[in-house]
């Protein structure tokens, strides 16, 4: 078992970086989507791989949800996955938000497209502040109404024990849209991000 803890200072520092990244993302999204995207205050914590499926079951167990994942990797060993979680009744207007013609794009493609936009704008905002550059893999649909997230996660055996989890909720009130984003930075990458945070803390 790797012993990883996050200090109060590190958490505050990360919180601050994330707040700024969210502000930048919101600003960019407003210009591109021409509607206001509201990002709720993030929740930061360490989660263990063993409790992850259970956490999902508790939060999303009864809902009609679709889960998408997009991997990312930057310099200095900073990498992870963002998971985007959509409830069926909050996704009807994605095509309108994205400015697509009706019936031009399938439901799954609307979800992959908006996931990619939300993930990359937010992470780019974070990367700019820590002078990093992030590359992304293509977003993929992991589970939909037919296969539950919990079941999907239980089938996996993780090669990490702990992950840094940042949970952010997105809301577009004009279009009755909302979704949750989980940024998960697993294993060694946590230590790498801690180093970055320590450097920033030293400079102040």
């Amino acid at each position: 078992m790797i012993e990883i803890t996050i200090t109060e200072e590190q958490r505050d520092c990360l919180q601050e970086l994330i707040n700024v990244a969210m502000g930048r993302a919101s600003d960019k999204l407003a210009r591109y989507l021409q509607t206001f995207v509201h990002l709720q205050v993030p929740h930061i914590e360490l989660v263990s791989s063993a409790e992850l499926p259970q956490t999902f079951a508790e939060t999303y167990g009864d809902d009609n949800v679709t889960l998408l994942s997009q991997g990312f990797y930057g310099q200095d060993g900073i990498s992870g996955e963002t998971l985007l979680i959509y409830r069926a009744d909050h996704t009807k207007n994605i095509a309108k938000i994205l400015g697509y013609a009706p019936d031009e794009v399938s439901e799954m493609e609307q979800l992959t497209d908006i996931s990619s936009i939300l993930t990359t704008t937010f992470l780019n905002g974070l990367a700019e502040q820590i002078e990093n550059q992030i590359a992304y893999s293509a977003p993929r649909v992991i589970s939909s109404r037919e296969t539950s997230i919990e079941r999907h996660l239980q089938d996996l055996s993780f090669n990490w024990e702990l992950a840094l989890k940042v949970a952010i909720s997105y809301q577009v009130t004009d279009y009755e849209f909302n979704c949750d984003m989980l940024l998960l930075i697993p294993g060694v990458a946590i230590e790498n991000i801690q180093q970055v945070l320590n450097q920033i803390l030293e400079e102040y």
């Binding site: 960019k28 697509y100 794009v105 990619s116 990359t120 780019n124 992304y136």
Partner: peptide
Amino acid sequence: SWMTRKLQGVFMLDSPAF
């Protein structure tokens, strides 16, 4: 029309599309 919208996103958001 779909691809134009995606490309606009790449230019405006400085982020990749897939």
